[in-house]
């Protein structure tokens, strides 16, 4: 267990800058997610912490020690790869023992004990003699996790470990990750492009965009107070609509390009041209109402819910609703939203 400190990390491949001066303090035992679309540099940042990638400028500190120039094997970390990277010529037990053997931790009996304990943590004790290729994807995943935690590394690095699993297994693994983190308290850096994963697992989320930190905060903060248009679009895929804020008779109002107005919270101080972020799940639709009116383009049936794609002032607008609401294509519906849940992003 250790803290990790990144100081103005810069990274360029050839002449293309991938990371622009990223600084990050990760507390001991914290579960932090690096969230972003593919190509935002999140995996590169993780590989820099692992030592698999060198930095162009900046410093990496683990447990108060500068490790910037150290190769991966001297950093006391463990990394779990998206492709699991199990060694195909070794059995499950040998794979899990590998880091202990290579780091010279304990004698044979102690190693066997720890391997057994780690495999039982991921409920795979009975498969220890199998070869990786004889396991299903989910089982390989668990072996990789056991192998990552067996040496009790200072930092646990997870590179999109759940993205190759089907939805059901992914949910199970999320629960498992949370429990293991609570039990072992390992400092964990988790890279993902899946906002739900980041929201459900982390103590803190770092939202990356084009090699820069877009926003940083607890899942609740990131979700409820996205600081930028990118953040609100990425988290919860909110609708972003350009609007202008005026002082109305009952407090501030946002007026869209087609002249329709949306009432805002009285405490809103912004005026002039802004972007209004409306979360899909916060919008409610009704046939009769006095909110702004939008025209239904399509309905997507999602099982538990419906997603309506509408257009408002020439912009696409999406809303998640209960599955019993039924509107026809081309019908005009009225929008309603709790003013407190409207986010205003100043341009």
């Amino acid at each position: 267990m250790a803290n990790v400190r990144l100081t103005s990390i810069q990274k360029s491949f050839a002449k293309t800058a991938v990371l622009h001066s990223i600084s990050l303090d990760i507390a001991s035992g914290e579960f932090i997610s690096l969230l972003g679309a593919s190509g935002c540099g999140k995996t590169t940042l993780l590989r820099i912490v692992a030592g698999l990638e060198s930095v162009t400028a900046g410093a990496v500190e683990i447990d108060g020690r500068d490790v910037t120039g150290l190769p991966p094997e001297k950093r006391d970390i463990a990394m779990m790869f998206q492709s699991y990277a199990l060694l195909p010529h070794l059995s499950v037990a040998e794979n899990v023992r590998f880091p202990l053997r290579m780091r010279g931790i304990g004698n044979r009996e102690e190693q066997a004990e720890r391997v057994k304990a780690a495999l039982e943590t991921v409920q795979l004790g009975h498969l220890s003699e199998r070869k990786p290729r004889q396991l299903s994807g989910g089982q390989q995943q668990r072996v990789a996790l056991a192998r990552a935690i067996v040496s009790k590394p200072k930092v646990l690095l997870l590179d999109e470990p759940l993205s190759n699993l089907d939805a059901r297994l992914r949910e199970d693994m999320q629960v498992e990750l949370i429990e293991i983190h609570q039990r072992l308290g390992l400092t964990t850096i988790f890279v993902t492009h899946d906002q739900e994963e980041a929201l459900s697992l982390s103590d803190r989320i770092v939202l990356l965009n084009a090699g820069r930190v877009e926003q940083e905060g607890t899942p609740a903060q990131i979700y409820s107070q996205p600081a930028t248009g990118f953040a609100s679009n990425f988290i919860g895929s909110a609708n972003l609509l350009p609007a202008e804020i005026f002082e109305g008779p009952d407090g501030p109002v946002a007026r869209f390009a087609d002249g329709q107005a949306l009432a805002l919270a009285r405490t809103e101080t912004a005026r002039g041209a802004v972007t209004v972020a409306l979360r899909q799940e916060d919008l409610s639709l009704s046939a009769e109402g006095n909110g702004p009116r939008a025209k239904v383009r399509t309905r997507v049936f999602l099982g538990a819910r419906n997603r309506y794609v509408m257009s408002l002032a020439g912009q696409p607008l999406r809303a998640l609703t209960a599955n019993d609401l039924d509107f026809a294509d081309g019908q005009e519906v009225s929008l309603a939203i709790d003013p407190a849940r409207v986010r205003i992003i100043r341009d």
């Binding site: 698999l52 991966p72 094997e73 492709s83 590998f98």
Partner: peptide, 25 residues
Amino acid sequence: DGRLEEAARTMGCSFLQTIRTVVLP
């Protein structure tokens, strides 16, 4: 898979140990 060598490095293998324990076999 090149990731196997990287994985070995993160598990405490030096370059030569990686060759011996992963690449050669």
